[in-house]
């Protein structure tokens, strides 16, 4: 495996360099879109259940099916990385819209009422009270979506754009386990580091959620 790495470091690095944006760009797009969508599902209560159903359906579409269907829908080339980005953005949106809605719903109604009674208007209350209080739930969802994206990018290798996934297909075609092993290890490492980063961010932006544990 070490031999493989030293002889093919450029291939492995290129795969990693492709993998990272393919996983994180959709994460960013999906989360940004999920915030307003999730909010609407809470603001208009009748939208919540349709939202759950829609996100369940989107999430249940097999990723490979989505990768090969999107070019027809979007008019993109079959080998375009745009297909992967759009597909993973959809998965992130499906996962996170629900999480954002649940996070906002987890905010104690007596707190939003107290905020209103102090003189908060709706938008400011959302930004200063409801969203911060929903953050622990939302960020827990971001962790799941990030790891899920990192692993789903590999599937793209089957249509030629898959970051570290390319190492799997290569190893499979050559009956050679080293690239597969390298791909797996790097995927897991990437996921672990990402998770650690998100957890650190979570701790930094929600110091209050750990405060009770430090209660004297």
């Amino acid at each position: 495996m070490i031999d493989y790495l030293s002889n093919n470091s450029d291939v492995v690095l290129a795969a990693l360099r492709q993998h990272v944006p393919l996983a994180f760009l959709p994460l960013l797009i999906g989360v940004v879109l999920a915030l307003p969508v999730g909010y609407l599902g809470v603001r208009f209560g009748w939208l919540y259940h349709p939202l759950l159903n829609a996100s369940g359906i989107v999430y249940s579409i097999p990723s490979l099916a989505l990768f090969v269907t999107l070019p027809y829908v979007l008019g993109t080339r079959i080998l375009s990385p745009v297909n992967i980005v759009v597909a993973l953005s959809l998965y992130t949106l499906a996962l996170m819209a629900r999480t954002v809605a649940d996070g906002l719903r987890s905010v104690d109604a007596s707190l939003t009422e107290a905020a209103t009674a102090m003189g908060y208007r709706r938008t400011r209350r959302l930004l200063e009270v409801e969203l911060p209080l929903a953050l622990p739930v939302v960020l827990a969802g971001v962790r799941v979506a990030a790891v899920s994206n990192i692993s789903l990018v590999s599937v793209g290798a089957l249509i030629g754009v898959g970051g570290l996934g390319a190492l799997f297909t290569r190893g499979f075609q050559l009956f050679y386990p080293a690239p597969i092993l390298v791909g797996v290890i790097l995927s897991v490492l990437l996921a672990a580091v990402t998770d650690l980063v998100i957890v650190s961010i979570q701790r930094a932006v929600t110091p209050w959620s750990r405060a009770s544990a430090r209660r004297a």
């Binding site: 107290a114 009270v129 209080l133 209050w208 959620s209």
Partner: peptide, 13 residues
């Protein structure tokens, strides 16, 4: 001024 049962303080502040 408004005071409620259980205080209703904002936990994140």
């Amino acid at each position: 001024g408004y005071v409620i049962q259980h205080a209703g303080l904002f936990p994140h502040r």
